[in-house]
């Protein structure tokens, strides 16, 4: 399920693609490095970016899309605010990586490779993060969590939602403050007029 573009995202995509293309020779050999750089900037490869890159390099968009889906590195969905990666290397699989993945799927109501519609969370499986001793491993944003069980998943989600809750709350407060200031200003203006 493709996620809809946010307001102003179209312009960002177009300008980033243009920036990347500027200092690169437009050859087929540079296609992968260009895609890598665009993904680095945008966090993912939107359809629009692939079309534009194809156009600039004289490669049909379908070819670019084929390449992007062939390689694991490229993602077609925007990353969530919190990126959750479940390790599915051999050691993690054997010790219950699948259970952790299932738990996240159940909690977030999305499948692997998808992003929640509010773009808060994205869920991915990765091949091996190289800390097999701590299996099963989950990487939440940059933090590595070892020995993850179903209850730990619940705990992690509570923690993330707690943070999000705090942020929302802080924003509300900030808004209230601003409103308050505005009101004061109006009052001051009123006083001046008097």
């Amino acid at each position: 399920m493709p996620v809809e573009l946010l307001e102003g995202e179209r312009e960002t995509i177009l300008s980033e693609v243009e920036n990347t293309l500027q200092d690169k020779e437009k050859t087929r050999e540079n296609l992968i490095p260009i895609l890598q750089q665009v993904q680095k900037k945008l966090g993912y490869l939107p359809g629009l970016a692939m079309e534009k890159i194809g156009e600039a390099l004289g490669i049909p968009a379908v070819d670019v899309f084929g390449l992007a889906t062939f390689y694991d590195q490229f993602r077609l969905n925007p990353p969530g605010e919190h990126e959750i990666k479940v390790c599915m290397g051999t050691a993690c699989y054997m010790t219950g990586g699948r259970i952790a993945l299932d738990s996240f799927k159940r909690k977030l109501e999305i499948n692997e490779g998808e992003t929640t519609s509010d773009r808060k969370y994205s869920l991915e499986r990765v091949a091996c993060v190289g800390c097999c001793t701590m299996a099963p491993v989950v990487v939440v944003d940059e933090r590595i969590e070892g020995h993850v069980t179903a209850t730990r998943v619940d705990g992690l989600m509570l923690e993330l939602q707690g943070e999000a809750g705090k942020e929302d709350h802080a924003e509300e407060e900030r808004e209230e403050e601003q409103e308050g200031e505005e009101r004061e200003e109006i009052q001051e203006e009123g006083e001046q007029e008097q």
Partner: peptide, 25 residues
């Protein structure tokens, strides 16, 4: 340095070369 994009098959040398040329491996 060429950065591979994460396809297991690219460990195979002819696929690796294909991917360096900007194609599917």
């Amino acid at each position: 340095i060429f950065q591979g994009s994460g396809a297991f098959i690219c460990g195979e040398s002819s696929a690796l070369v294909k991917s360096m040329e900007g194609h599917m491996g």
